[in-house]
């Protein structure tokens, strides 16, 4: 464990709880893409099946359980409890256009052709693009609530911090996972446009709105 990974994990955790708290406190999930949340739930469930097969540490297992539970809770709040506030007519990204190609790619490009490894690879690929429905929704409505942009900033920072972690691990531990690194780069690149808007607007107290 190094500082980049720890801060990355905490940033990830913060993102999920910022979103949960926003929905819970405002009793509304307006402006949040339910499709991205379903994809994240799928990401965690397919990646953390190894909870049952190998034990790393209490920290590792605990975080996995928290990630799965909190994301499933977000999906529950959006699609059941606060369904009336869900902005479905702006959340029109077709997730099959992500899930199907990513599934195919996981079958073709993986470290090992075993069920758990293919699901892990699927999860890594899917995570890299899972935010697209959310970004698509913001581009459709042209704006995002400030709290939603804080969520996105924390979520995007997590993978960027993991990139630093992989550089660190490559030099100091000889660790290198090409699949994770390539997917992590793709994931971070997708946030670049948002990071720019966040830094130039939200950090200066302005609302995130897209130029017309």
């Amino acid at each position: 464990m190094n500082i980049f990974r720890l801060v990355g994990d905490l940033s990830h955790l913060l993102a999920i709880f910022v979103l949960l708290l926003k929905i819970w406190k405002s009793r509304s999930c307006a402006g949040v893409s339910g499709k991205s949340q379903i994809l994240f739930a799928l990401v965690f469930i397919t990646r953390y099946l190894d909870l049952f097969t190998n034990f790393i540490s209490v920290y590792n297992s605990l975080m996995k359980v928290i990630f799965i539970a909190s994301t499933v809770a977000t999906v529950y709040l959006m699609y059941i409890k606060f369904k009336a506030t869900y902005d479905s007519n702006h959340d029109t990204f077709r997730i099959e256009f992500l899930v199907v190609p990513v599934g195919g790619l996981a079958f073709l490009v993986n470290h090992d052709f075993t069920p758990l490894e293919i699901l892990w690879t699927f999860s890594i690929y899917l995570e890299s693009v899972a935010i697209l429905p959310q970004l698509f929704m913001i581009s459709k409505t042209g704006e995002a609530e400030t709290i939603t942009s804080h969520y996105l900033f924390a979520l995007g920072s997590y993978r960027a911090l993991y990139l630093l972690n992989w550089i660190y691990r490559y030099y100091f531990e000889g660790y290198f996972d090409l699949i994770a690194v390539v997917a992590g780069c793709v994931q971070t690149i997708l946030y670049c446009d948002f990071f720019y808007l966040y830094i130039t607007k939200v950090m200066w107290g302005k609302k995130l709105s897209l130029p017309a």
Partner: peptide, 10 residues
């Protein structure tokens, strides 16, 4: 450079 068999990251 090797990919570890056990995945210790989240």
């Amino acid at each position: 450079r090797k990919t570890p068999e056990k995945k210790d990251e989240l």
